[in-house]
Amino acid sequence: MLSWIAFSAFSAIAISFSLGVVFASNPIYVILCLLSVLVAIAGIFFVAGAEIVGAIQLLIYAVAVTVFYVFVLTAVPWEKALKKDSHYRVEGVLSFPLLIALYGQMIFTFLLGISASPKGEFKRLISSFGSTEVVGGILFSKYILAFELVSLVLLVGMIGAILIGRKESQTYDSP
């Protein structure tokens, strides 16, 4: 009962603020709406008992990602941030079929996932071990190759960022 109330409250918050993300014209309100949506989704994860996913949602999406949006916005001149004619309207309409396809794929994967574990085997695992241990176990046994590849990609990305962001010893401006 209590969890249903919490779930509907979080869902209502998530849906209403995602409308705000789409329709608000002031970019800083858009970012705040996005933040609210992400926090509400973390709340839904907590209600569902997926504590590790909720905590990571908070830590990575609600903090690490959104902070950089706020940073960019506070550093950009205000007239530029409010400009509306730079929105890619034609491209947006053109990419719509792709978006539909992506959503279709998501729904398909979701249905596949339901039929993959009909007996709720993961639920039993989680109740006996705790969700952190289950996630760790699966990452380091079944998905070890994907996990290592992703970490390699991230390492490459990090090295690239350091290379781009380093201080040049000699620039074109220097005599």
Partner: peptide, 25 residues
Amino acid sequence: DVNVGLLLVFAFGSMAVFAIALAGW
């Protein structure tokens, strides 16, 4: 007593950034 308590501590801890950035802006 959630079993990811420490992750939550650091998630909430870094949320202070939003308050600071917004207050300044």
